[in-house]
Design a protein around this nucleic acid. Structure first.
Lengths: 245, 245
DNA sequence: AGTAGTATGTGTGTAATGGACACTAACTTG
DNA sequence: CAAGTTAGTGTCCATTACACACATACTACT
């Protein structure tokens, strides 16, 4: 292998450089009940042994970063098939890891809540229930408003993920990723309320959503409980599209 | 050194992993004349010898990523004191570099244009004129709408930088970083027009900017050419603040 | 001194958007 | 059939976004 390496135009001998380790960490987010939750694993080894941390691990030499994020999420928590995964930010402070230099490419993932119709109907099942993976002592969903102190700089990563999600909610249709394929407008509204942490007006919300042209009516209703049944909708595209076009 | 490394909770022996190299690449942007320009260096070595590339290079073991970005920009192009520097995205496709696995943390930097009052007044001088650095054969500003094919995936990095800049222009005051300390409203408008690549209405633009409350009037005018002199302004804060508060 | 040239600077009217706000409809359960 | 519960709907008002045209203040030339 040629060891003449540079990102720019010069010449270096690779052996002259110690290389940092490169990891991915994933903030997997879901909405259950009326709070957002984050998936954490409990560390079994030093450093931060016993502390909770985001699932994550080292990137393999021939592996794409996105692939590594999916893989680590699955390996450490048993959660597969995140409906949305986006790179968030790369955290690289020299001492963020007490062992050695570790540069972490952080991702956030969105998963439909546990009450999802997908799950109830038992088809196209997505694995959302965590189970401790090969590397993790324990895996659990934690409500974001009462997180324990996390290992490394993971509290900062979570904060970044939440603020990014809040921002994207405003100008894209990412919300699809937190909902089952079919849902009622009330369920959609709750997702918005949970993320934004504020109540929204029902009439204005419905007006805006329907006007955005990202929803299709499905010819079916959801009847549940002693009240009027609700119309079901689905997103026209199961991907994050920009609104306002 | 302890070699028990994991981003999550498990146990690995570092020696079992080949580590990728980690680089930073910087898309330095400025507005000169009526076009945006990007600072490129010409590569002197394989691969992509002779091709133009973004300035960049490897991150040192005990160096912050932001620091590395500043350093590489300066070392390779002689351009110091970027008024804004922000991490953009991390590019990590396994074969983006033909030599070995290189993960690149991309940044974009903004610099005031060459007509800056700072430069004309000769104080607080910022080095904006490129000169080939130790590692670069040649360094030059290129208009973004007629870039040559770049080395590696650098065309994609530039595209990402431009779209991020366009987006941020809409909800922050980043424009400050492309202007000298004092400027006229017309100069400010041109910066917007150049970035958005469309003409704006003068009256609406001025109304909006003044209403945003991010500008201070300076008790001085700019007289230049055979026409009415223009009021000078400065940004209340020389940092990117969110509008609409 | 006056005139031509050039970029600065200013206000109004109209359309679109965002937000507040209260009642009827349709179902289930007892 | 009555009580309980959630679904579903429309108007008014305030703010914002956008289109649009002319007087002002200087320089340079004759």
């Amino acid at each position: 292998m040629d060891t003449n390496l540079t990102g720019g135009a010069g010449t270096y001998d690779v052996s002259a450089f110690d290389r940092p380790s490169v990891a991915v960490d994933v903030a997997a987010i879901t909405a259950r009940g009326d709070r957002l939750h984050i998936l954490l694993v409990r560390r079994g080894v030093w450093p931060f042994e016993g502390r909770w941390a985001l699932p994550g691990g080292f990137v393999k030499m021939d592996e794409d970063l996105d692939t590594a994020a999916h893989r680590e999420l699955c390996e450490e928590t048993g959660v597969a098939g995140a409906s949305y995964l986006e790179q968030l930010y790369t955290f690289g402070a020299p001492n963020r890891d007490p062992r050695t230099r570790v540069i972490s490419v952080a991702y956030y993932a969105l998963l439909p809540g546990p009450d999802s119709a997908l799950r109830r109907e038992g088809r196209a099942m997505v694995a959302c229930e965590p189970e401790a993976g090969t590397d993790a002592a324990e895996a659990r969903w934690w409500p974001v408003d009462s997180l324990p102190p996390l290992a490394f700089d993971h509290n900062a990563i979570v904060a970044t993920a939440l603020s990014r999600l809040r921002a994207k909610l405003g100008y894209t249709s990412v919300a699809y990723a937190l909902l089952p394929e079919e849902f009622t407008l009330t369920e959609l509204q709750r997702v918005y309320e949970v993320i934004l942490a504020q109540e929204l007006d029902k009439r204005n919300f419905r007006k805006k959503m329907l006007a955005a042209g990202i929803l299709d009516t499905v010819p079916r209703q959801k009847r549940e409980g002693a009240h009027r049944p609700a119309q079901l909708y689905r997103f026209t595209k199961r991907e994050a599209v920009f609104l306002d076009d």
